[in-house]
Structure formats: C-alpha cells, structure tokens
Amino acid sequence: MLKVTDLNVHYGAIHALQGVSFNLQEGEIVTLIGANGAGKSTLLNTISGLLPAVKGKVEYLDEDITNLEPQKIVRKGIVQVPEGRKIFAAMSVMENLEMGAFTVTDKKLIADKVEEMFAKFPILGKRSKQLGGTLSGGEQQMLAIARGLMASPKLLLLDEPSMGLSPVLVEQIFDTIQSINNSGTSVILVEQNAQMALVIAHRAYVLETGKIVLEGDAQEVLQNPMVIEAYLGVS
C-alpha cells in the first residue's frame, strides 16, 4: 500500500533521514520505534507532505506522492495525527471533529461520521460543546485521533499517541488503535512505548539516527536481544 524507498530528508543542518526504505501492506499496523531524535516524526511528516524529501520516493497505492502538498495527500486518504495532542484549543470538540472532515464536502457524511465518533468515544459526545483546550490530556488525545478518523483515512499516521498519558489511558489508546485497524484502516504507529506498540503491531522497524537498523515481524522484534536491551529495558 505504502512504499518508501531510499528517503533522505534534511531538517535544517541535520541529515535527519539517511536513506530510509520501508513498506506497509494494506490492513497492517506497522510500528516505527526508536529513541528521541532517531527520525520517526520526520519520517511521518515527510510522508504526509509537511517536510520535503531531498532524495528518495514515497509511493502510495502505486502512485508517486513524494513532496506532494499536504492537503492533496490528505485527500488521497493519508491522515496524520500529530505528536503531542495537537487539537484546536479554541474550537469546541464538535468543531474540531468537523475540522477533521475539512476535505469532505458531503454534509450528511460528516454528520454520520460525527455520530460514529461519538459512539466510539462517548466522552467526546458528552463534551461536544466544550472548548478543546478545556479537555483533560486523555480526552484531548482521543479527540486528536477522532479528528484524524473524520476524513475516513485509508492510512492513519499516529505520532506518539501515548505520550504523557497515564498507564490506564495508554492501554485504552492502544485498544482503540487496534479496533481502528480491525475496521480496515492501515496504521503507521510511531512510539516510544515500544513494548505496547510491538504487542499490537504486525510488523516493526527500528530507527536509529536516521537509518533503519532492524525490521521484521513485531513478535520477532519483540524477542530481539538488541531491542530488549535498548528499548524495552532488561527485565
């Protein structure tokens, strides 16, 4: 479904991605794990068009989408949920959701989608008229994910959805991701919480300073001694 080949991205003076190649099959959850500054978020931002690639190719459904404008990529069905619960704080929950469906023009479809999100995240329904900024951290993350789903993406890019959340909430978020995947959306999941990510993912890539150093089935990666030592902590 998505095929990235030899991607090179500069972030200011930093050569953030140095020839990254990876792929994703339809219906998969692929997780990218790695330490801070490994280039995970850069990779997501490049796929969604927020950062330009200097070399390499991003292909999506056999179409070259490298360096396409972000709004065009959204229309093609790739939606990113940015890192750090970035919701529109001065908009109500409802308006945030409607904003997620910005590329959708069919009002009926938007209303249906909102209903669907309220069914999936009942707390958002209860808070629909509240300003996004007044929600709690967990609620904001749910809103960010729900907003991403509003455009009915075929591929969802999640950037550290568990960041700064309590363990109970983290578990709920990962349950949600799994259920989103079960209903047919492919997911690229960038995570620091490697343990949880590897449990729900099908396949995994390990990034280190802009290069992919390990790839394989999630279960395999979970067993890999290097990963255990570097990302899971020796237990």
Partner: peptide, 13 residues
C-alpha cells in the same frame, strides 16, 4: 484552524 496551529491545519487538509 490556520490561526491556531498551522501544522495541524495542514494535516487536516
């Protein structure tokens, strides 16, 4: 949306 957060606005299309 642009006023609030340019990056996120871009990400929503």
């Amino acid at each position: 949306a642009v006023k609030e957060d340019t990056k996120v606005a871009q990400a929503t299309g």
